[in-house]
Design a protein around this nucleic acid. Structure first.
Length: 304
DNA sequence: CGTTTTTGACCCGCGC
DNA sequence: GCGCGGGTCAAAAACG
């Protein structure tokens, strides 16, 4: 039986928001932990987004959706350090997208400070080196009315716990594939009940059982050594599948994945946008790609 | 009848 | 040592 691991360092991969086209409700947050401590630690895309070392109470922070875009503000993770990593000293420590308002920067500053504070509190030195390494994890927020988002994999719920300071419970799922140990947690934000925070942990060792079509692997960056990148993206979803999903979920995605296989029901086009994010933030949403098929144009306009 | 969900119990790490 | 909280187990119930 797998016993739970101790609370350990968690790294936030670029609490990035997309610039002006998609306002404050459009944030990306990812968690990635443990690989910074071991050989797994090469970073792939993380070098783009950077890492923040976070406290386990990441979800509290993820609830803050007004973090302005900072595609290059953060730096990469160093395996040696489990302390607070490379947090920008100030929100202005790097070139920030021109779309960031000062108010947004202030807000971001607050967020960063909060991150730092919590990290300092909870990232006490880990004495026990023998702790099992935790699988890479990352979390993201999704605006959705349903808690358990379809992502192309089959999951079995194995637990549910009340979340402190939240009226909403946290659910624990495991991939049903016998050889696959991927887990995920789903909880609804207490601050914004319309937002679902999903955390994936581990790597799928098998293709998605749902989608017959190819994955995004071919267009992925060479994320090779980044373990979390082995999440298979449920991108084989057909358009009809998405259309079906729209009846349940709000027709836009609250969060976007980092540039890797993204284990949620985000659309391929949002992924592509994210890919461009590292190099050009100006063309975002200019080309909606498949998003156009998924999100009605009038809905999209709301976001623009 | 096989699979999934529910839910109380249990384990473990951590702070006091 | 104790209590708390997060995470998991596993038996029973529910579901298809």
């Amino acid at each position: 039986m797998e016993k739970k691991e101790a609370m350990e360092t968690q790294n936030l991969i670029g609490a990035s928001t997309f610039p002006d086209q998609i306002p404050t409700t459009f944030s990306l947050s990812s968690i990635f932990d443990m690989p910074c401590e071991g050989e797994k630690g090469s970073l792939g895309f993380m070098e783009l987004l950077g890492i923040q070392d976070l406290s386990p109470s990441i979800f509290d922070l993820l609830q803050t959706t007004s973090i302005p875009p900072q595609p290059s503000a953060l730096t990469s993770c160093r395996p040696e350090s489990s302390e607070l990593l490379n947090l920008p000293a100030t929100p202005n420590s790097s070139s920030i997208s021109s779309s960031s308002t000062e108010a947004a920067n202030e807000e971001h500053s607050k967020v960063v400070e909060e991150v730092q504070e919590k990290a300092k509190i909870q990232l006490k030195p880990k004495k026990k080196n023998q702790k099992r390494q935790r699988e890479p994890r990352f979390a993201f927020m999704t605006k959705s009315e349903v808690d358990h988002l379809e992502d192309g994999y089959r999951w079995r719920k194995y637990g549910q716990k009340a979340v402190k300071n939240s009226p909403f419970p946290r659910s624990y799922y495991r991939c049903t594939s016998p050889t696959c140990g991927v887990k995920k947690r789903v909880e609804r934000s207490s601050d914004d009940p319309t937002t679902v925070v999903t955390t994936y942990e581990g790597q799928h060792t098998h293709p998605s059982p749902v989608m017959p079509r190819g994955t995004l692997a071919g267009i992925l960056p060479d994320s090779g050594s980044f373990a979390a990148a082995n999440f298979s993206m449920p991108m084989q979803m057909t358009h009809s599948y998405y259309q079906q999903q729209q009846h349940q979920q709000q027709p836009y995605f609250h969060s976007l994945p980092p540039s890797l296989n993204f284990p949620t029901s985000a659309s391929p086009s949002t992924f592509l946008q994210e890919r461009r994010f590292g190099t050009s933030t100006t063309s975002l949403l200019r080309d909606n790609g498949l998003l156009q098929d998924i999100v009605p144009s009038d809905m999209r306009k709301e976001e623009e």
